[in-house]
């Protein structure tokens, strides 16, 4: 019987390039593989994705498995689970890492169950346990109120990793490795879902994930009009506007600007949280924020436990004066 060995990363490709999460997984996978003294491989699944193999080497992979097939153009559970099962059975990695993305959230559990195990989802720390040599997976639980560390008793040990939790290596384009093509071998009649439409809910301006300044609004903003004030400030600071869940649920802002456990993960230098209580679920999306600044009328609000600077007061009075002063300072 072949032994399970090595670390494998499921590397997503977006718009012809390795997705940011893939480079983060490779950075983390490289360290784990080195700690074990084993190989790091990447598996790239899609249509027209073969060109991304070199990029995976540059970011740390020793070997790249490519499953390239027109049927893999769209992510679909049935097709992607089938080819990933094939890749895992061929490569026999001891550890398999995926991104906690809209693909990874769907793919990892279904793949794990097909391999007769379960995954550990949304990890923020991964390490090789010194005594057991198993993968120790740490993830936020209870909406971020607690953290739990898990060890899988079954091979392969599967985990998904939160965006921005890991650091990519500096790409080294001179790194080389072995490319292994895997036949998809899919039966189109066995695919039970069909993607009929993809809808992008575009938000103007700088993307939340890339912004250096994020202005977040909460339930206390009270309506779509209030968010216009946040937009104005964001425009001045070349930042992006996000929100906790209530403004999205109430339709004040589009769902795609939700920051938190089930929304976007942001990591700006400055996060200005306005009329936002700072629930654990929301803060789960802010763990990478370097400086959190809060304006909230409730001195007991959880956001003040997370913030570096804060003002206790009604945002409707504080924010316009703040915005005017910022305008003045930026004009100097």
């Amino acid at each position: 019987m072949t032994e399970y060995r090595g670390v494998m990363v499921h590397a997503e490709v977006a718009e012809g390039k390795l997705a940011a999460i893939a480079t983060e997984l490779l950075g983390c996978g490289r360290k784990l593989a080195d700690d074990l003294g084993e190989e790091l491989s990447a598996v790239i699944v899609g249509s027209g994705v073969s060109g991304s193999a070199q990029e995976a080497f540059a970011f740390g992979a020793d070997k790249v498995y490519v499953v390239n097939d027109a049927l893999l153009q769209d992510y679909r559970t049935d097709t992607h689970v089938a080819v990933m099962e094939k890749a895992v059975r061929q490569a026999m990695p001891s550890i398999l890492l995926l991104g906690q993305t809209s693909i990874g959230r769907d793919l990892a559990p279904r793949l794990a169950f097909r391999l007769e195990t379960a995954a550990t989802m949304d990890c923020i720390e991964l390490a090789i346990d010194s005594s057991s040599k198993r993968l120790l997976c740490t993830k936020p639980v209870y909406g971020g109120n607690a953290r739990a560390a898990f060890i899988s008793e079954v091979e392969p040990q599967i985990a998904t990793v939160r965006a921005k939790a890991m650091t990519p290596l500096e790409p080294d384009s001179s790194r080389k490795g072995e490319v292994v093509a895997i036949e998809a071998g899919l039966d189109p009649s066995a695919v039970r879902t069909k993607v009929t439409e993809k809808v992008k809910q575009e938000v103007e301006g700088i993307s939340l994930e890339a912004a250096n300044v994020v202005i977040g609004g909460g339930r206390g903003i009270g309506g779509a009009d209030g968010f216009k004030q946040l937009e104005e400030l964001a425009g001045m600071l070349k930042g992006a506007v996000g929100a906790s869940r209530p403004p999205c649920d109430n339709g004040w802002v589009p769902d795609v600007v939700q920051i938190g456990l089930t929304g976007k993960i942001v990591a700006p230098d400055l996060y200005l949280a306005v009329a936002l209580s700072g629930s654990s679920q929301h803060m789960a999306g802010c763990s990478g924020c370097k400086n959190i600044v809060a304006i909230n009328k409730d001195p007991e609000a959880n956001i003040f436990r997370e913030a570096r600077f804060g003002v206790v007061g009604d945002w409707k009075k504080v924010l316009p004066a703040f915005t005017e002063k910022v305008r003045e300072l930026l004009a100097e």
């Binding site: 069909k194 993607v195 009929t196 439409e197 993809k198 809808v199 992008k200 795609v256």
Partner: peptide
């Protein structure tokens, strides 16, 4: 992440 997809 950036909207939604329609799946049958």
């Amino acid at each position: 992440a950036d909207g939604y997809e329609v799946i049958e």
